[in-house]
C-alpha cells in the first residue's frame, strides 16, 4: 500500500509514454501467489447460513449479468432470456430481477425490447471489439462498439488485445481502451459504461493480472472483468481477489471506484457466496452492490433460484422447476 500511495501523485504522468507506463506497471508490488491462494482457501471456508444466506442469494441474483453468447443465438432466445432476467422466479414476486442481460451486438435491439417494462428497464450489456479473441483492426473494433451503443446497449464489454499486452506493448493496449471508451459516447453527451475483459486465463501470472487491472483503470474502465467465458480457466477466486485488491488500491490512490466482474465457470450458489465473502473481505462492503460487482453467468441463476426455493419452502427443489438454458 505504501508504495502505491507514493505513486498516486504521479499517476497522471505514467501514461505519457510506453516507457513510463512500463516503469509504473513493473513497479507495482509482485503478487504473493501462495499467499493469495491460501487466503482464498481460508475465506472459502466461511459458513454463510440462514438469514445471511437468504440475503446473499438475493444479492447474488441482483448481481447476475444473465448472459447468452452463442453462435446459435436467435431473437427468440434473447427474448426468453430477457423475460427470465426480469422475473427469474415467476412464482415468487419477492424474487429480485438480475442486473443486466449480456448479448452480442446484433442481439442488442431484441434484448432492449425484452427487458423494457412500463416500470423501467434492466440494463443491456453488449460484448464488442471482435469478442472473444479481439483479433481485428482498431477501426473495426471501434465501429463494433459504436454499433452496439447506437442499438441501445447501456454497457459495453470490450476485450483487450492480449497479444499486445503479453508482448509488452502496454501503451497500445492503453490507447485502445481509451479509444473504445470514447466510442461509447452517445449523441446526448452521456456514455455507455465500459467493462474491460482481460481473459485472465491467457495472462499466465497474477502479476500480469495486477498490471492489466491498473492499466485498464488508468485508461478509464468503469468495470474490470476476468474473462470471456470462452477460455479455460475462466474466473477463479484468486484472480478475482487480485483484481479486488487493485480496485481497492486504485480508489485509495485516486478516489475513483471501479467495479469487478468475474465471468465464466461460476455455476453454483456456493461458488457465488464465496465470491461475495471475498468481495466483502478484500474490497469492502462498498462493493457489495450490483453497481460495483457483477457475475457474468448463465447457469448460476438457476442454482441460485433452486437454493432460494429450498430456503423458502423447506424442501429441496430440482431442475424440473427452472428453465432450460
Amino acid at each position: 500500500m505504501t508504495s502505491l500511495s507514493s505513486t498516486a501523485s504521479s499517476l497522471a504522468d505514467v501514461t505519457t509514454s510506453d516507457a513510463a507506463l512500463r516503469r509504473f506497471l513493473h513497479g507495482l508490488p509482485g503478487v504473493d501467489q501462495v499467499g493469495v491462494e491460501q487466503r482464498v482457501a481460508s475465506l472459502a471456508t466461511r459458513s454463510i447460513k440462514t438469514t445471511a444466506k437468504a440475503y446473499a442469494l438475493d444479492l447474488a441474483i441482483r448481481m447476475v449479468d444473465l448472459t447468452t453468447l452463442e453462435g446459435a443465438d436467435t431473437p427468440g432466445k434473447v427474448r426468453s432470456l430477457g423475460a427470465k432476467a426480469l422475473r427469474p422466479d415467476p412464482t415468487d414476486p419477492t424474487c429480485p430481477s438480475v442486473a443486466a442481460v449480456c448479448v452480442y451486438p446484433d442481439m442488442v435491439p431484441y434484448a432492449v425490447e425484452a427487458v423494457t417494462t412500463p416500470g423501467g428497464r434492466l440494463h443491456v450489456a453488449s460484448v464488442a471489439t471482435a469478442f472473444p479473441s479481439g483479433r481485428s483492426s482498431r477501426s473495426i473494433k471501434l465501429e463494433d462498439t459504436r454499433d452496439a451503443v447506437a442499438a441501445g446497449a447501456d454497457e459495453i464489454d470490450m476485450v483487450i488485445d492480449r497479444g499486445a499486452f503479453l508482448t509488452g506493448r502496454y501503451l497500445d493496449v492503453f490507447e485502445e481502451i481509451v479509444a473504445v471508451r470514447e466510442a461509447c459516447a452517445r449523441p446526448d453527451g452521456s456514455r455507455a459504461h465500459l467493462k474491460v475483459i482481460f481473459e485472465t486465463g491467457e495472462l499466465q501470472t497474477y502479476d500480469n493480472v495486477r498490471r492489466v487491472s491498473w492499466l485498464a483503470m488508468l485508461a478509464g474502465a468503469d468495470f474490470i472483468k476476468t474473462s470471456t467465458g470462452k477460455v479455460q480457466p475462466a474466473a477463479t477466486l484468486p484472480v478475482t481477489l487480485v483484481m479486488l485488491e487493485a480496485v481497492r488500491d486504485f480508489r485509495a490512490s485516486t478516489g475513483r471506484m471501479v467495479g469487478v466482474k468475474p465471468a465464466g465457470g461460476i455455476r453454483t450458489s456456493k461458488d457465488a457466496i464465496r465470491y461475495l465473502v471475498v468481495v466483502n473481505e478484500v474490497a469492502g462492503p462498498d462493493w457489495l452492490d450490483p453497481d460495483w460487482f457483477r457475475f457474468g453467468a448463465s447457469s448460476l441463476l438457476n442454482d441460485l433460484l433452486l437454493q432460494r426455493t429450498k430456503m423458502s419452502t423447506g424442501r429441496y427443489s430440482g431442475p424440473d422447476y427452472v428453465t432450460l438454458d
Binding site: G314, R315, Y316, S317, G318, P319, D320, Y321
Partner: peptide, 9 residues
C-alpha cells in the same frame, strides 16, 4: 423425510 419432500425425486 428429506427424500419424501424432495421435488426432484
Amino acid at each position: 423425510p428429506w427424500l419424501a419432500s424432495h421435488m426432484d425425486v
